[in-house]
């Protein structure tokens, strides 16, 4: 009999330990996911026992559906919030990494949005952005803008207003991760650069920024994935309105599945969403060689 190493023997116990969790993943994630893949090729309506196989009809319908294309556009605008939030978070982290007064308090304040309840936050922003007497528009009127934007009340600005909330929401988390990365940078490197006569700006963008690039990469990938899947914020503020202008793909899936009960079509949309996330992640993974320095 072949001798097995201690590690190999222990392996079984390891499997036993992760089994409850794995069972959960299998039952509540993998099987439903495969099920929805199958549904994509049917006309299944929720609760309706009559199901027939329709081949690629749902996918064909997807690419002819104008609502789908506008959902893709809105998702694109929504994704803009990720890089913007990263840059702002980086700058804030830089400032807070120096010796500023009330550093601890400020850090806490920037992180607060991330731990507060999403629905409560949504409500506060609805009040702030209220078009006729919300504080933001009051200020804009006071500084001389006679007709400030309608924000959530206007189909042209609603998606951007959502972006603002999302940026604000993600800022704290991104900032904390950046702060940790900044503290990893050794003081010698920066000092050497300064002795060589590099300006503060050069140090920041030519030395510090590349040194935290692995962090940027991580935050970018997770941020894009999270944002693409995010749902509750928009559902709480606009429910995809006005006139569908904030319906991103995830809301489109929700509406199709749980409002219209078209499970087959909804599965097709969500697998499309999955494919997009996968492709974006792969592209970034390949592209990282150009700009991420480990």
């Amino acid at each position: 009999m072949k001798r097995r190493s201690w590690i190999q023997k222990q392996g079984w116990i390891g499997y036993a330990f992760i089994m409850p969790n794995m069972l959960g993943i299998l039952l509540f994630f993998i099987i439903p996911a495969l099920f929805s893949f199958g549904l994509m090729f049917t006309d299944y309506q929720f609760a309706n026992p009559n199901v027939s196989f329709t081949g690629l009809d749902n996918i064909e319908r997807l690419f002819q559906d104008e609502q789908f294309y506008s959902a893709v556009r809105h998702t694109g605008i929504f994704l803009l919030s990720v890089p913007i939030s990263l840059v702002i978070a980086f700058i804030v982290a830089l400032v807070l990494n120096r010796s500023v007064y009330l550093k601890g308090l400020l850090r806490g304040m920037f992180f607060l949005p991330y731990i507060s309840s999403g629905v409560a936050v949504a409500f506060v922003w609805m009040l702030l952005f209220q078009p006729s007497h919300g504080p933001i528009n009051e200020v804009l009127r006071w500084i001389g803008i006679a007709t400030p934007p309608g924000w959530f009340a206007d189909s042209d600005t609603a998606m951007y207003a959502i972006d603002v909330v999302q940026i604000w929401f993600m800022l704290g988390y991104n900032m904390i991760i950046y702060l940790a990365a900044l503290q990893e940078i050794s003081a010698e490197q920066l000092e050497a650069a300064r002795i060589d006569g590099a300006s503060a700006r050069t140090v920041t963008w030519k030395i510090v920024w590349p040194l935290v690039s692995p962090t940027t990469f991580l935050l970018l990938i997770t941020g894009l994935i999270m944002t693409m899947k995010s749902f509750s914020l928009i559902q709480a503020i606009t429910q995809g309105g006005p006139s569908g202008s904030t319906t991103i793909l995830s809301l489109f899936v929700y509406k199709t599945a749980f409002s219209y009960y078209e499970m087959g079509y909804a599965s097709a949309i969500s697998w499309f969403l999955f494919a997009v996330i996968l492709i974006i992640t792969i592209i970034q993974w390949i592209g990282q060689k150009r700009w991420v320095h480990y």
Binding site: M126, F129, Q130, A153, D154, P242
Partner: peptide, 9 residues
């Protein structure tokens, strides 16, 4: 106005 009624619920 419609937008007003909508957003201020």
């Amino acid at each position: 106005e419609y937008g007003e009624q909508l957003t201020s619920k």
